[in-house]
Amino acid sequence: MVDVTDHELVPEHEILDEEVLEEVLGEYDIDRTDLPKIKRLDPAIPDGAEVGDVVKVTRDSRTTDRAVVYRLVVE
């Protein structure tokens, strides 16, 4: 089967460590439920991502070179 994560149009997704996550949440002063969501079964997210994890998406941007987005994994 094709692994979509290897495709050039699929940006890099990585699971965030708990400590880093705390920092991010602190920076924006939010709960993790306030983050944008991503489905657990989304083929782009790394294996082993559990519901409640947060993935960091680093994508190429037209306006800035790199744009970082955090997403909460949901059911």
């Binding site: 306030d34 744009a67 987005v69």
Partner: peptide, 22 residues
Amino acid sequence: YDGTVRDTSDNIVQFEFGEDST
């Protein structure tokens, strides 16, 4: 003011307006 775009219940829609705050 922190550059994020949020709805009224504080859900983040964009972490940086238009990715470049411009």
